[in-house]
Every structure is written in C-alpha cells, then in structure tokens.
Design a protein around this nucleic acid. Structure first.
Length: 498
RNA sequence: GCAUCUUUAGCUCAGCUGGUAGAGCAACUGACUCUUAAUCAGUGGGUCCGGGGUUCGAAUCCCCGAAGAUGUACCA
C-alpha cells in the first residue's frame, strides 16, 4: 500500500468511512456514565459480589486484539481499567465496531466487573459505543509494572514538543498533569487562606491607560473605538490602593500581569501574581501572612517541609530569618555600607565590573551589591528588610531612618518570592517619589514608574496606613512542585513561532 | 543580547575519520477467545530543521539562518 506523508490520517479516515457504512455516527451527541473508573477500582469486591451493571466512558489508550477476543485499557480523568471484549458477548456487529476502534478513540462501555484469568480486575463488556473517533495516532507510550514501579517506554519527552503540544504532554505524561492539578490546589488554598483572613477578592483592569506599581516595560495595545493606546498591566498595585481609598479594608487580586522583558527559567512574559492590601496593617503584618501562607501551602497542601529546588535543599519549616539588607551586604562583602560614601561604593562596583545605571544614588548601589553578592546565597527563606528608599517609590520610609523604606522581599533558593511594604500614603511624598522616577525615566530608565495623576488624586482624598504585598504564584508553584523551569508550571508557556 | 549544546520516520533514538538512511515502538495486511511493553509472519513509511558552500560524493565538514535547552546579561 502506498503511504503518503499524511498516511496515518488517511488510513484512519478510511476506517471512519467503514464505521459510517455500518450506520454508526462516529461523533454522536449522547453519552452516559454510571461510574467513574476510580469508583470501580475502589469498590472492587462490592461490585463483584452484586454483579452490578455499569457504564463507563473514557479514552481507549491501548488495545490488544486477538481474533474474536480483545483487551483494551480505558482511561478517564479518575483512573484506568482494562476492558475485556469478546465477540460472543458483544455480538458480531458490535464486535465489528471494536475491531475498527483505535487507541485514542473515546468510547462508552457497558458491562460488569470481574477478574481475568491473569488476575487483572477488568470490565467484561456487554456493549461498546463509539463516542469520538481518533484520526491521528497518539505517540506510543507504553508502560509496564516492574517490582511495583511503573517503567515507561518511548516516553513523549521532547521538551519543545511537550510545551507546544501541551495536550499530548498532559495526556501521555500523568506526572505532568499532576503538576497542574497541584497548581490548581495551591491557588485554591491561597484564595481560601485570604478569604479566611477577611479579604475580599476583586478584579481590576488588565487594560490600563497608564501602567504602574512595578518597574518593568509594558506591552502596548490599541483600542479601536476609543482610538487610544492601552497598556497591559504590569502590576495591580495602584488600582488595589484606590479600592482601599474607596473604603475596602482588605482586598486581594490573583491574576495575570504582563511584562515585556527577557524570558528565562523564572520569567514568562505573562505570569500570575497575587497582590493584597490590608488597611491598618504594616510590614510586620505582611511578613506574618507571607510566612504562615507559604508554610500552610507546604505542610497542608503538599504535605512536606523540605523541597529540592534549583539545586538546593530548602526547608520551609524552620524559623525564617529576618535581616537588614545592609547587614547582609556587610556579611557577604565585608563592606560597611553605612560608613561608605557613594564614591566608595561606585569604586567597589566598578572593580567588580558591575554596570551602574545612570542616576544611581547610594541606595541603588547598595541594592546592586545585594543582588550580586547576597541574593544568590540566600537559600533558606530569608526576609530581607530595610531596602533603600531610593528604589522603593511606593513604600513608606522606615520610622527613624529617612534613607530606608519599610519594605521587605522574601528570598528562597536565591530567588525573590514576595515583595511587601508599609504602603506610602502621604500624597505629597508620593508625588515627589514618582517625579523622581520620572526623572530616571528621562535619563533612559525604561522601567521607571510613570506619574499617575489619578492615583495621586486618590491619595489626596486620604488612604489609611496599610501593608501590601505581592507574591509570584508561578515561582511558588515551581518551588512547591520542585520544578526548575517556569515553563513546567505554566500550561501554555510563551514560545516563538516554529 | 552573548556563549555552548541540540534538531534524523508519528514517538524515543542510533548512524565512527565524508561513500546509496537504520532500530524499537506506533501504522498497515494476515493469524490468534485470557492478553496486559501481548505474540507470530509479512508490508509500507524520510525535505536527515531551512538555505548556501567545499567535494567525484555531505545526515556527517564550512558559512548563514530558524527553533529549543542550558548558562550568562537584562528583569531595582
């Protein structure tokens, strides 16, 4: 038989025609199910004793036909069971249909459970119905139990294909499906945790006339009817603060932010973040929430405290260190930051070949030293406090030290997991800080904040003292599911056209 | 952005210093009423990522390009 490049599809389409010739609709509307497959597997003896007749549905994932008898494995979202299909039980016509079925087809099977001679718990089929015909063969992945462990053969493992054809990855690699089930449970648990603290979940605009709340380059789009450019949000901060002005006391938003920047194993251009703001709280309150939330997710959702991540062993269970940025810089570089002049720090950076952006003050230099010499070393959870105010335009100054912000970032395994401040609510101070950012922007810093007049006006009407925090969900899921690439925890990661 | 590596059948891969492209699984045909990585017999299937070059001859060597991975830079 001559076979062309799309040989597989052609052959299956021929089968499809044969099925139609039997008067069977290969894509019927109706299906029914009396039991999930897991319900059969969990109640074997009772179903066996009662000889209950059941109807199950799912995808046929393997077939072993031998003349007038055959076996198949049927899989639904809950589990997998072997089908025993014999001509003398189905009748000739129905068995003819079975012979035209392929792995990948969706079918409905009626029958009752029993043990085969080989001792496998199976469904003895009395009828099968085709629910959806597969016309493109699935990549063949076979598995076998060896000493109680599942050994897999010819795994669908090409990383690029797994990301581009995620549906195949999910279908063929149950471990990867599990990661996304866990992601869902983690997000549900986060929402429940915040709800229990009395927070209200809100939704603010993704399309924004001005962007703010973080230092990042935005995606720009255009609204035709309004004939105006809009930005995809880089953060939810400024809108959530407006809600606190509006009388809400505890709000959170869990959703996507978009940043038009580099991509690597911890950055995807669209990513998921939770931000929350609590009136009459402050940095200390935010620290307590971060620690108790993440410990709760580890212990109660995942069920452990030790995680392997980016080559490190991280213990989320212990007491989390709290340290000032300047002390950490001193600890790892030996520099006494408080006693150093801006010139001293610039000289040190130059000696270490660290590029200094235009307009950098002493605070920025301290932050640069921190990033280069401290950040990668912070393996166990560490709250880094006392950020320079200069690089924290939306944070209140630390009481008693006008050069520092009342801010922390949480670092785990050398990466940032949370960022929180006692939020700045002095409208005059906020205006000055945003104008300082605008000056940096004029010097070429494309990631500096822009001045948002409406936000400033909202502050002028009065905003209570409060704590606010952002936690990157993707990285948290990476840590908790022990995946080193963000693409492993995002269902459809950004890829170039191939 | 830069560096290194990868790209061969539907999937997973082999293919040595250049000599007519291979395996397993999947697919197709046939046999088979207790298989389960079913088995047995047979068959078909390739833009060797794309383009150019060197050579009598290129999957293999060289150049350009694409995609992906890793590292690095940027992302305070």
């Amino acid at each position: 038989m001559q076979q062309k490049p799309n040989q597989f599809i052609k052959l299956r389409q021929e089968k499809l025609e044969k099925i139609k010739a039997l008067g069977i609709d290969p894509y019927p509307v109706e299906s029914s199910r009396s039991h999930f497959i897991s319900a059969l597997m969990e109640n074997k003896e009772a179903l066996l004793a009662s000889e209950t007749s059941v109807t199950i549905v799912g995808r046929l994932v393997a077939m072993r036909r031998q003349g007038k008898l055959g076996f198949g494995n049927l899989e639904d979202a809950s589990g997998k069971i072997q089908l025993y299909v014999a001509q003398n039980l189905l009748g000739e016509e129905n068995y003819e249909l079975f012979k035209l079925c392929d792995p990948g087809d969706f079918i409905q099977a009626n029958g009752s459970v029993f043990y085969t001679q080989a001792g496998e718990f199976s469904l003895k089929c009395t009828a099968i119905k085709l629910l959806s015909k597969n016309i493109r063969p699935l990549p063949a992945v076979k598995e076998k139990m060896v000493d109680g462990k599942t050994v897999r053969y010819d795994e669908f493992s090409d990383i690029e294909l797994r990301y581009r054809k995620r549906y195949l990855d999910l279908l063929l690699n149950p471990d990867h499906r599990k990661v996304f089930e866990l992601r869902s449970r983690i997000i549900t648990a986060i929402r429940r945790f915040m709800d229990n603290l009395g927070y209200v979940e809100v939704e603010t605009p993704i399309l924004q006339p001005l962007y703010g709340g973080a230092n990042a380059r935005p995606f720009i789009t255009h609204h035709n009817t309004l004939d105006m450019d809009l930005y995809l949000r880089i953060a939810t901060e400024l809108y959530l603060k407006r809600l606190i002005v509006g009388g809400f006391e505890r709000v959170y938003e869990l959703g996507k932010d978009f940043r038009n920047e580099g991509m690597d194993r911890t950055h995807n251009p669209e990513f998921t973040m939770i931000e929350f703001y609590e009136a009459y709280s402050d940095l200390r309150g935010m620290m307590d929430i971060a620690e108790s939330l993440i410990k709760h997710l580890a212990k109660d959702v995942i069920g452990k405290e030790i995680f392997h991540y980016h080559g490190h062993e991280v213990n989320l269970g212990g007491t989390w260190r709290r340290a000032a940025m300047t002390d950490l810089v001193n600890e790892y570089t030996g520099i006494k930051v408080d006693n150093s002049s801006q010139e001293d720090l610039e000289a040190f950076c130059k000696a270490k070949q660290i590029e200094i952006p235009k307009g950098s003050g002493k605070g920025k230099l301290i932050a640069l030293l921190f990033e280069h010499f401290v950040e990668p070393k912070l393996v166990q959870p560490t709250f880094v406090c006392d950020f320079p105010k200069e690089i924290s335009p939306l944070a209140k100054a630390k009481p008693g030290n006008p050069l520092l912000a009342d801010r922390f970032e949480l670092f785990i395994a050398g990466g940032e997991f949370a960022n929180a401040f006692s939020e700045l609510n002095d409208p005059m101070d906020q205006r000055e800080r945003l104008e300082a950012q605008a000056a940096l922007r004029a010097l070429g810093d494309e990631e500096a904040n822009v001045v948002d007049e409406d936000f400033l006006e909202a502050l002028e009407y009065g905003m209570p003292p409060m704590g606010g925090q952002g936690i990157g969900i993707d990285r948290l899921v990476m840590l908790l599911t022990e995946n080193d690439s963000i693409k492993e925890v995002i269902l459809f990661p950004q890829m170039k056209n191939s």
